[in-house]
Amino acid sequence: MGGIRDAQKQATRERVLAAARELFVDIGYEAATIRMIADRAGVATGSVFTTFPSKIAILRAVMDERLERLFLELDAVVPHLRGSTVVRLCSVMAMHYDFEMRRPRLFTTYLAANFEWSDGEPLITFGRQPRLVGILRDILTAGVTGGDVRSDIDVNVFIDFLLAAYGFNYRLAAQEGLGAGELSDIMDRQIALMFSGIARNAAG
């Protein structure tokens, strides 16, 4: 394949993504049209369509690219987390709130798009982000080995429940104008209560 053409294609892709990210943040996903994205990126509307099959595909790419940065941060930090399993779970989720609450609108837009009708290719729904699920699974496995988590727990049910709370807390943020710190405080208490169901205590 032609190297120059690939490089051009890549450049177009990056410009479209940058323009889309700005527009989604500024005016929201719904209001942003493909044409506006093309204008801001300085490319033809047709080029956007040859790069991405749909607007939702652009949103998906924007979110993936954003998350890449969060996961790099997590990869660097998680191995060094100290403390009990609860504390480590809380830290990972607090890092998520810190990150996503910089652009809350983008994130809730993404959650809304999860339930959209059109476009056969679904987004990764909240609670199913494989890298986050993997990180949480590792922490829980370490907890079982370390002795503060029971060995007979259903890891999937626990993680799914934890991420449900994580996601729905954003609604709270929207309704009550809460920031990342307050969300993390709420999440800490929720995790503590959920964790009581999988904790290995002296009696058990």
Binding site: F115, T125, A164, A165, F168, I186, L193, M194
Partner: peptide, 23 residues
């Protein structure tokens, strides 16, 4: 017990399970 905290969690669990029905 913190009733509000427990209710919030039960509500989140209940609602989030609709994803399982939809997907």
């Amino acid at each position: 017990i913190d009733v509000d905290l427990a209710v919030d969690l039960i509500w989140h669990a209940y609602q989030s399970n609709y994803r399982l029905a939809i997907y």
